[in-house]
Write a protein that binds this DNA or RNA. Structure first.
Lengths: 351, 351
DNA sequence: TTGAAAGCGCTAACAA
DNA sequence: TTGTTAGCGCTTTCAA
């Protein structure tokens, strides 16, 4: 009796069957807890499983059932704390339900985003969590629509009428930032963002402007949106200050922007918050240990992941209601980098 | 003629076959570029593929070939820049060779590490890149050995005689740090690390001590190793300073330690580098934009990933030589957080 | 309560 | 040059 299959070197369900003196079908039943198997056979099967070290091949099993217990995830990058913890949470949640998460990175490329969603489709994943590069109208989302894929859109998205969406309530977070800045006395704020992230930029910008105007009608809001990449933003920001613009605070709509702003301040010898205040989207561990500590909008990563998976598995189970749009709230951590505006020239400036 | 398969809703190879008026085998041949197919049939198959939007199911294909074009990766966490870029690089490299990377996180747990490697085995992946929680003797590596899995160990590992290993040359990097600190005039350095990461801690520590003693025989090296977690380290570090120890520099052997050190300095009102110098393993984007900029050892992420994948695919291709141990070099960025030791009491200290 | 048979989507051997 | 046949490892009727 061959104890091991010839090809893979691992015992198959047939090896277990012959070892236990039953059929493969019976083994399958035992493995799935079907109760109509004679107790004696159940025992024999378990014994065989034990001695052979048998473990089912989930992919072969999925093939037959025509339903893969795999959830695909596509995020714009792996390098940030935000998406890193997002993947961690999604993975945990998927595994809790007996699924495996296959996480991929679009590396901020819409072309790659499309390739990835196609691969997910090729893999016949049960569902997809897509964090698009730009917004809910990107190529991947379109592909999902055209191919009736089941999935949920997260992060850089607004409400959509084909898919459920979950994203931080950027608008209200921005309103909170505006309120905090106004309260400190700021009346001239520079907002920087990435135009590429169409969905969220709009919400964050509108939320800020609306609240600012309401709370301080004399508020001046400058805006720098870099279309494609972070590089141009760096230049635009430098030009902006070089032309003499002197906002008392900068609000960055995305994580890298906060770094770009800090870098520009450093270049000019400006200190936070003495010379200029700074607050940005996305918290990071380092922000609470540096000098100064950096004020940040904390996105509810856990809630986003949890809610996204909840509705995704609802859809997988066949729920057919209209798409829902969730907007879990952010938290604002006003740290040292935000102070009252100073009067008079900054460090390194002539009168 | 049924254009779509009943079960998955997607056309199968048989749909293409009947649509093109050939057999499934012929379609398969065309898809694989076999040249013994009549040009006319090639054209017909392509046409059918086009109109049906056919794409092969890679998992079904792999099942039959008894070889999955999947590489599994297990890293301790997704949240750090280091492992984030590592996954990005591994993914890129795997895809270049026509494989899909399935990345998972052990969340710094050895139990989970074992479960994950078992799942990789269940999935019959072609190979595994394992970044163990602790070292090359962990449960996952043992499982790989016992089950003849093909894989490569990276990061927190030393040379191994079952598996190829790739990790940054921690010892020489630490020697470089020692040299730089000695050169600045430091003669009392505190080194902090995580005992849990047995493999790298040893190399980094030994490298530092050896070089320090050689370059400055009067060097005093204090060491705090927190066994399990970062939490205890925080306490130990606080106690250490509270007891009056006054090194002029701190060298952190791991990324989080750098944050813990900064946090402790902040708590005491000490400034870098005026009151104490700081240098740590692992660079991060924020380190070059904060005040002060933080000195760091930059690990060669790209090289590690590239070399690991090179040797992994060599093994997959059947190469049977003895395991190799690669040690790509680190780069040391000595930034503002490292200065000459000051004389006299620090800020906030009596006498 | 069981197992033979069929088949998920694909590929590989072989005969024609 | 092609199609038939026989599976990969598993599940699922369905007849016994």
């Amino acid at each position: 009796m061959a104890v091991r299959a010839a090809r893979t070197g691992r015992p198959s369900i047939h090896d277990v069957a012959s070892h236990a003196g039953v059929s493969a079908a019976t083994v399958s039943k035992v493995m799935h807890g079907v109760t109509t198997v004679k107790p004696d056979n159940v025992r024999k099967v378990y014994a065989a499983v034990e001695t052979l070290g048998y473990r089912a091949d989930p992919l072969a099993s999925d093939l037959r059932r025509a339903k893969r217990r795999i959830i695909g995830a596509i995020v714009p990058e792996f390098e940030s704390e935000f998406f890193g913890s997002m993947i961690t949470e999604l993975e945990r949640s998927a595994e809790q339900r007996g699924y495996t998460l296959v996480a991929t990175s679009s590396r901020e490329s819409q072309d790659r985003e499309l390739e990835l969603i196609q691969r997910m489709q090729d893999w016949r994943v049960a569902g997809v969590i897509l964090a698009p590069v730009r917004d809910e109208h990107g190529p991947a989302a379109r592909f999902m629509r055209e191919n009736d894929m089941t999935g949920v859109l997260i992060d850089r998205v607004l409400a959509d009428d084909s898919f459920d969406t979950v994203s931080a309530d950027s608008a209200s977070a921005s309103a909170g930032v505006a309120a905090a800045l106004v309260e400190k006395g700021h009346r001239h704020v520079l907002v920087i963002g990435l135009g590429e992230q169409a969905a969220t930029v709009r919400a964050r910008l509108d939320g800020f402007k609306a609240a600012a105007i309401e709370l301080a009608p004399d508020m001046v809001t400058d805006i720098i949106l870099s279309e494609s990449d972070v590089g141009p933003l760096r230049g635009a920001l430098h030009d902006y200050f070089s032309k003499g613009s002197r906002p008392t605070a900068v609000y960055s709509l995305f994580a890298k922007g906060t770094l770009v702003a800090l870098s520009e301040f450093r270049r000019r010898g400006w200190r936070c918050p003495e010379d200029i205040s700074l607050v940005g989207f996305d918290d990071a561990e380092w922000m609470q240990v540096t000098w100064p500590t950096i004020a940040a909008v904390v996105q509810p990563v856990h809630s986003i992941a949890e809610q996204a998976m909840d509705v995704l598995f609802g859809r997988i189970a066949g729920y057919g209601g209209k798409p829902v749009a969730s907007l879990p709230k952010c938290q604002i951590l006003m740290r040292e980098s935000v102070g009252a505006p100073r009067h008079g020239p900054r460090a390194g400036e002539d009168s």
